[in-house]
Nucleic acid binder design. Structure first.
Lengths: 260, 260
DNA sequence: TCATTATGTTCGCTATAAGAACATTAAAAT
DNA sequence: ATTTTAATGTTCTTATAGCGAACATAATGA
């Protein structure tokens, strides 16, 4: 059964003002959680009058508030799908297993999915550490820079992978970031052999992560199970031995739980 | 500094098609995560042609997918503000403290905020239990039926509380649900004296919960700290003694963390 | 005080978005 | 297998919704 995702919608079937309004929500990011009208207009490349109308609509509907200078999101924004996404069966099954893993390793762990050239963090189990990575559910990072991206790209068909490599812009974040498509392909091929990936300080200096695939009952990779941590806390060796074992075990438990 | 939330926006400043499009997203709920075109049109009270255009726009923009019959949300929906909300300072500070609490009590706990006549669950720390309550971040329940609602209503000014009681419809969910506004006011007044609330099986039989307020550095109540659990697991007495002590301690730790 | 920046408002214009009606496809009933 | 019913897709008309330009007002900075 083919899934229709990003096909071209005929211009008559596309509601431009709806899409533009959504863009206004999207420019509120972790880096810019509060913005003035002019900042929003600039960020969205709209006129002030247009941006203002969308913002006022969001305020009227309760999704945003304004202190007469800055606009900011309100919790009602969670009505826009989050509860649905987070209640999907896979995360219901995965959550307690991930929490056991987080407790055992004393680190946060995440379930991650691929979306276009990025990965999105879709579920989390937290540890009680104060120093943690600045990633939360909903965070989005470029797939080429993290281990979960590598695992998810490895699960694509060869055709899909080549398409990604054709189109993706491999932005350099640290001296470690792989920006060569040939080298990245080689790393992904290795990930295919290994069945896991460790990526060291390619997104940010000091951030190391390990990932394994999460498979559903049919054996299809539906997410990556990911554990990022400050590189000072767990050595590369320990990650490749003790942590990897725990991650593989948890991943298999999630798959088993999806078979019931 | 007054905060402008739900004022009337002049009709020229309100983008109706944007608001209608958002409504299409909102009808996808935990109960109805997948829907056909006709179901969406009925749920939103729109013509099929209009609902179809919004759905196709969402598919084109990557927020939804369709299998040629049902539409369903994709993880990109998390771009619509979730990451921002979840990264606000208060939850950054609260998360490790809540996780310690969850580990200690071996139960999930939540931070909860009031919105109109409902409460929304805005942060969560999970336990590794398999049997857990069916609440997740983004869940919304009527304020009058849960302990967090009671704590948050208790923190309103008398004027705001009377307005709530005037307008709210106290729907009955179980034989225990308080539907008398006089009785609810009396319970809230008691909560004001106690500084905490326990609510027993008023939303759902078998669901008991306890809440305390979370205050910011200025002493203003900004959320409730809430622990719901199956009523068979923790007795009323244990909740009022051991659990309450732990919740109060965690709440004070969060407030202290917000002072830095 | 003046200059600059940001926000608010008005208004004319046009093309966007809505809905009605028709066409096609799929599913259910006989 | 055929017919009926239900669901989805498409087209087209048209009113007005939404846009942006320009002007007005308010706030901030020099």
């Amino acid at each position: 059964m083919p899934t229709k995702t990003k096909e071209e919608t005929s211009s008559r079937d596309y509601v431009n003002s709806f899409a533009r309004g959504l863009e206004v929500i999207r420019v509120f990011t972790r880096a810019k959680p509060r913005m003035t009208l002019s900042e929003v207009a600039k960020a969205t490349d709209m006129t002030r009058a247009t941006a203002r109308r969308f913002l006022l609509t969001l305020v009227q509907e309760g999704y945003m508030e304004s202190d007469n200078k800055h606009f900011m999101l309100r919790p009602k924004i969670l009505d826009l799908g989050y509860s649905v996404l987070s209640s999907m069966e896979i995360w219901d099954v995965a959550q307690p297993i991930m929490q056991q893993l987080a407790d055992k390793l004393q680190e946060c762990c995440f379930a991650v999915v691929l979306q276009e050239h990025s990965v999105i963090y879709t579920a989390r189990a937290t540890s009680n550490r104060y120093v943690s990575v600045g990633i939360s559910v909903g965070s989005r990072v470029p797939a080429h820079t993290v281990s979960s991206g590598r695992v998810l790209l490895a699960a694509l068909s060869e055709e899909e992978l080549l398409k990604y490599l054709d189109e993706a812009e491999l932005v350099k974040y640290t001296p470690n970031t792989i920006t060569s498509k040939v080298k990245l392909k080689s790393e992904i091929d290795q990930t295919r052999l290994d069945g896991w990936a460790i990526v060291d300080q390619e997104l940010e200096i000091g951030l190391r992560s390990i990932s394994v695939p999460i498979k559903d009952a049919t054996g299809r990779v539906v997410a990556a199970l990911n554990m990022p941590c400050p590189s000072a806390r767990i050595s590369f060796d320990e990650m490749r031995t003790r942590v990897l074992t725990e991650l593989m075990t948890a991943s298999n438990q999630i798959t088993a739980g999806l078979m019931r």
